[in-house]
Design a binder for these strands. Structure first.
Length: 586
RNA sequence: GCCCCCUUAGCUCAGCGGGACAGAGCAUCGGACUUCUAAUCCGAGGGUCGCAGGUUCGAAUCCUGCAGGGGGUGCCA
């Protein structure tokens, strides 16, 4: 079942054009192109700006709008046509629209918002992709959740999507790590989690390499041995991978994120040789200062490195092999890389190399960049990129735990009788961190502000969840089943009219998010729905006539309960796409 | 030096297939809980949409230049 593509208000656009065309003496297509959305739904559902007409009609646009308003004979599904300055505003009949929208949502339920424009198309998304031997830092939330949300959003629009966690598990750093392990050993008796110890060893290895060239050389040799398949090196490395993956999995479980493929860079190691030969055969490989490169100077880009002087490969080489593997073995119609914008040059180079190699399919590969998480540098007071070495990072797990603790405290204070406070606290805490990351356009840098992340008030995850729980709570107390014997004409309050229209526009918001690879479009749309619903709900506490549940007015109650059910469905569906849990109580 | 991204209220942002008075949240101040969860809502103050040009009947939105900030820029990933 696939529902709501285009949206209900959209559906009537053509009817508007048909209606206006004869009066304007213009072809329908042209009228359609002129139609706009009024800034506020209280003004109308469609607007015809009359500026363009003013030129040909040689009259002020205000006059044209006024005249059109009198010349148009009202007919269903239109309820009003009025001139508003230079605009002609057209309003749909509330009963017709509300019925259409709410019945669609009720019938589609968890499928509302889905579409089929992606049917038959396979998308691969590379996301999360942390480096092993280090704990997940806060900034890993970005690729992980943006990628996860895009996966859900694209699936909702009919695409077949597979997520790939492209672990950074290969390269010189792991040679250094082995060297450090051999030199400094391991304290098996220590009461410290293996990942923490591994992380410490990693930091020590990097420091040592910077200080001592001999140690750096030792590390490079270990990586050479690793790449050559040396058993001892391999054994160490394998253990690093296991420790890291076990740790990552804990965080992924907390976030509700999973992958169809977890394949590290190491996985493509066996394909490196053939990839290089293939590029060689294309005549693209050049030797330069003892290294292997693809010269991209003709395209104003630095060379693409394939092999270092010491003969070992780089992440660029492995990315190349990985993409070829993805195309050849996994297959895709579109391959997305959800990676921070600091790597845009790398991807431009990567795609250019494949283009030069004659791979026309590379135009289906896209870097989906996002802004960096900036940390406040205590010395300069400036916002700069985080750095493990300088201790300028927060661990993702720690932030999540703090958020959960915040939620737990809030529950204890506000809702002490809640049945399963710990489970809900986990949902709310995680939701707070996730929504905070997805609510703004991904390209914006994120200034790490723990106060903002943990704040449960305002435009936040808890706000969205709270609104959802409010809907659930009203529905639990409702004496009627949503959608049964409803007189849709009773939904006349301004908030009701606005909500119906925003609910109607939800599928289009999901479709836009899928087109632009931008989860924030969904988040912002949900935020607007929640704001309207909360205003509506609160007005009901002051004015009994606006209450959703009215014992003395079953007909109005039935209509409002139906609207509430639809709001809840859309909030729940949207939050699910974003990876934000939606508890019924909190 | 060169390349990419960002610049809208004190702070964080939305709005950007041009169009109706530039909207939220946080913070500040003032209000609303015997009634469907106040993690809510209502109100107030606060903005020459970085600057300068250009296109247009009309520009926060499109184009050019400049400035500030962030990032990248051949052997890290």
């Amino acid at each position: 079942m696939s529902c709501g593509e285009g949206g209900s208000v959209e559906k009537y656009r053509e009817a508007v054009a048909q209606w206006l065309a004869p009066v304007l003496n213009m072809p329908e297509a042209e009228v359609l192109a002129l139609l706009r959305l009024p800034p506020d739904s209280s003004l109308g559902d469609y607007a015809l700006p009359c500026f363009a007409l003013a030129r040909t009609w040689r009259r002020p646009p205000q006059q044209i709008a006024a005249e059109l308003a009198t010349r148009l004979a009202l007919r269903p599904p239109f309820a009003a046509v009025v001139a508003h300055g230079p605009y002609l505003n057209i309003t749909l009949d509330d009963a017709v629209l509300s019925r259409e929208v709410l019945e669609t949502i009720l019938a589609a339920a968890e499928h509302y918002g889905e579409g089929r424009e992606g049917q038959g198309k396979k998308v691969l998304i590379d996301y999360s992709s942390p480096n092993i031997a280090k704990e997940l830092a806060f900034h890993h939330i970005r690729s992980t959740m943006i990628g996860h949300a895009l996966k859900q959003i694209l699936r909702a629009r009919g695409y077949t999507v597979e997520g790939i966690n492209h672990l950074g598990d290969w390269g010189t750093p792991f040679g250094l790590l082995i060297a450090a392990y051999k030199r400094f050993g391991w304290d098996a008796a220590a009461e410290v989690e293996p990942i923490v110890q591994l992380n410490a060893l990693y930091v020590r290895a990097t420091e040592e390499a910077a200080r001592d060239p001999a140690f750096a050389e030792e590390g490079r040799r270990w990586f050479q041995r690793l790449e050559a398949g040396d058993a001892e090196a391999r054994r160490c490395w394998q253990w690093f991978v296991e420790v890291s993956l076990a740790e990552f999995q804990k965080v992924y479980d907390l976030l509700g994120v999973s992958f169809e493929h977890i394949l590290g860079e190491s996985f493509y190691e066996p394909y490196i040789a053939e990839t290089l030969e293939w590029l060689q055969a294309k005549g693209l490989v050049k030797e330069s200062d003892g290294a292997c490169i693809v010269d991209l100077s003709a395209y104003d880009m630095p060379p693409f490195m394939l092999k270092k002087q010491d003969g070992t490969t780089l992440y660029s080489t492995r990315d190349l092999a990985a993409l070829l593997y993805r195309k050849r073995v996994m297959g895709f119609d579109c391959c997305l890389y959800v990676v921070d914008m600091g790597q845009s040059l790398h991807f431009r180079q990567l795609f250019k190399v494949l283009e030069l190699a004659g791979c026309d399919w590379v135009r289906d590969c896209h870097h989906v960049p996002f802004g960096l998480v900036l940390m406040k540098d205590p010395d300069s007071g400036r916002w700069v990129k985080g750095s493990t070495r300088k201790g300028r990072v927060s661990l993702l797990k720690a932030v999540l735990e703090e958020a959960i603790a915040m939620a737990r405290e809030k529950i204890a204070a506000s809702n002490p009788t809640l049945a399963n406070p710990d489970a809900v606290a986990r949902q709310v805490g995680v939701g707070a961190v996730v929504f905070n990351d997805l609510k703004n356009r991904r390209i914006k840098d994120v200034k790490f502000d723990k106060e903002a992340i943990l704040n449960p008030y305002g435009e936040t995850g808890p706000y969205m969840q709270y609104t959802h729980a409010r809907c659930a709570s009203v529905l639990a107390a409702a004496p009627v089943t949503p959608g049964e014997g409803v007189d849709y004409a009773l939904l006349r309050e301004p908030e009701e009219r606005a909500l119906v229209r925003k609910l109607a526009a939800y599928p289009e918001a999901v479709a836009s998010a899928a087109r632009e690879w931008e989860p924030a479009i969904v988040a912002q749309h949900l935020l607007a729905i929640a704001a309207d619903f909360n205003s509506y709900w609160t007005r009901g506490t002051k004015d009994a006539r606006v209450r959703i549940l009215r014992e003395q007015d079953p007909a109005t109650t039935a209509a409002r309960v139906t609207l509430t059910a639809a709001v809840r469905t859309v909030l729940r569906n949207g939050l699910r796409l974003l990876g934000v849990p939606a508890p019924d109580e909190m």
